[in-house]
Each structure stands twice: as structure tokens, then as C-alpha cells.
Design a protein around this nucleic acid. Structure first.
Length: 281
DNA sequence: TGGAATGTTCGGCT
DNA sequence: AAGCCGAACATTCC
């Protein structure tokens, strides 16, 4: 499930290969994948890609003359490049949008592909200005990757919600998903149901450090490949080997050997160590 | 065999 | 306003 480290890995992987390439056409195979787009896909026909960057869990493709394309992979989205020959050899029913590329990189026709099994992913076309005004993008909180401790504390210290739910709220903090929220709370020894404003200043600082450490370790490993996520070149990330609690229900805590527990917090499966992560009284 | 679980965001509700 | 919950989807698992 692409969260910040996975999306960042995708952007870093695609930037060198897509820069200065031209999008010859946009073929929408599943119309719901572009629902809510400010402009028609044709807006991008013939435009050149200047740069890719990440905004929370969104991928932003910047093109010539202020053109933009925002992509959210949601759960099963994948972005990558394939040659015409590869596409013809392995028919793939899950490709939702195809971008035939033109421009000097290779002699053979190739395609940027948006693949998405569960059809939750979305692409929005429009000027950068129009994309920035989309509610979901405009509401995004500060990026979880580079945040000063004082800013992090300010986002959470007066909130009455449960810390796990707040960490997942993209308008508070952009980038964390279910895996890294659980892993960060484990590192900081904080129970996922703890009410945020009851967490001490020093514990919030520890949580901030845990978020930074978890994200940078995951980024270094190329993200977590569970179920569907793969890099643009088809290779998996490796962080699933380093997960301490996520998906480990019943297995011993790596710190204290107590069995990892699974509960539901805000409708999300949440894994934690009941011994290391005591609920504060 | 079919119902639950999986995760992200949005819209509607309180 | 802040926070909670169901819906959108396809596939896997028990």
C-alpha cells in the first residue's frame, strides 16, 4: 500500500526516465480512474514532462507551460514504463490509463502505464494551479518527512482524537498510512488509542523521532511490498522484513516477547505490543 | 460457499 | 469544528 516511502520511491525511480519525455496521447481504459479531473485527458496530449515530485501520498507530474497531472495510487496503484512489445506479450487487464510516449529516449514505442487492480487510484489533469486548488490537495498538512519537533507537537498536542487516527489524517500530517503509523507508535512505545492531548511533550518528541526514523529506514529499503506494491521497474521493496508489529498478531514482540495484539482503531486494523505500549492513565 | 478483511479518501452525520 | 462511520472497489482467505 503506497504510503510516503513507496510514493517517494516511485518518484525517484521515474524522474530520470520520464523527464523531457513527451506524452503523445492519453488512453483512458477505465473512466472512473479520472473521475473529478478538472480537465479532459486531452489537455496533456503532446506536452512534455518537466519534473516529478511527491506531495504527501500524491505524485505530481509537472509539464510544459504550467501543465500538471496529479496521481494517487491509493491501495493497488502502480506506475511504470513498458515497451510496446512487453504490452503485447503480457496482456494486462488491470491497466487503467495508458500514455504512449514520444521523444528521443529510445527508438521503440513505449508507454507510461497506470495499473490499478482495485480501481481506487485516481489521476487528475489540469494546470498546476487547478490541481493545487483540488480540495484533497489543498487540505494536505505538512509533509511527514521533514518536520521540526515543535511543529509536530503543535499539530497534535491540543487534539482530543486518538493518536493513531490523527497520524492517519492527511490534513494534519501528510504521508503516513496504516503500516508506518503502527510502526512509529511501536518505536515510540505509545498505545494507538491514546488521546493525543494526554501525551507528554517528551513522548511527542519521541513519536516525532520515531516517525522520522521509520520513514527514512523504509525509504532506504525502497518501501514495503505487501500484496501489490512494486517499484516502477517491477522489483519489490524490502521493508516488510523490518516490520516490528504490522501484521504480526500473536507473534512475540521483538523487545519483550509479549504477543503482539491486533485491535481496530477508527475502522483500521492496528497492531501493537500491549506490554511495551501501555495506555497512559 | 459466501462473508469478512484488506487500506485511502471523501461525504455525510453528529 | 472535530471526529466518527459507511462507501467506493477487487481479490484473497477461511
Amino acid at each position: 500500500m503506497p504510503e510516503l516511502p513507496e510514493v517517494e520511491t516511485v518518484v525517484r525511480g521515474l524522474n530520470p526516465v520520464l523527464c523531457q519525455r513527451r506524452i503523445a496521447d492519453v488512453e483512458v481504459l477505465n473512466p472512473s480512474s479520472i473521475k473529478g479531473s478538472p480537465r479532459s485527458p486531452d489537455y496533456w496530449k503532446g506536452r512534455r514532462i518537466e519534473h516529478l515530485r511527491r506531495w504527501g501520498k500524491y505524485i505530481l507530474i509537472e509539464g510544459s507551460e504550467g501543465a500538471g497531472m496529479a496521481i494517487h495510487l491509493r491501495m493497488t496503484g502502480w506506475l511504470g514504463i513498458k515497451s510496446k512489445r512487453e504490452i503485447e506479450q503480457e496482456k494486462d487487464a488491470y491497466v487503467r490509463v495508458r500514455f504512449p510516449l514520444s521523444g528521443r529516449r529510445s527508438q521503440h514505442q513505449d508507454f507510461l502505464l497506470f495499473r490499478d487492480i482495485r480501481k481506487f487510484g485516481r489521476i487528475w489533469f489540469g494546470s498546476l494551479r487547478e490541481l493545487e486548488a483540488l480540495p484533497s490537495l489543498a487540505k494536505l498538512g505538512p509533509d511527514a518527512l521533514d518536520l521540526k519537533p515543535s511543529v509536530f507537537r503543535g499539530l497534535l498536542s491540543d487534539r482530543r482524537g486518538r493518536i493513531k487516527s490523527l497520524l492517519l489524517n492527511q490534513s494534519i500530517l501528510a504521508g503516513l498510512g496504516n503500516i508506518y503509523a503502527d510502526e512509529s507508535l511501536y518505536r515510540a512505545r505509545i498505545h494507538p488509542e491514546t488521546t493525543a492531548h494526554r501525551i507528554s511533550r517528551s513522548a511527542l518528541d519521541q513519536l516525532h523521532q520515531a516517525v522520522c526514523d521509520t520513514l527514512s529506514a523504509a525509504l532506504k529499503a525502497g518501501g514495503t511490498s505487501i500484496d501489490d506494491y512494486l517499484h516502477p521497474d517491477g522489483t519489490p521493496g524490502w521493508f516488510q522484513r523490518e516490520l516490528k508489529v504490522y501484521g504480526r498478531e500473536g507473534q512475540p514482540c521483538l523487545r519483550c516477547k509479549h504477543a503482539i495484539k491486533r485491535i481496530v482503531v477508527g475502522q483500521r486494523g492496528s497492531w501493537f505490543c500491549p506490554r511495551c505500549q501501555r495506555k497512559r492513565t
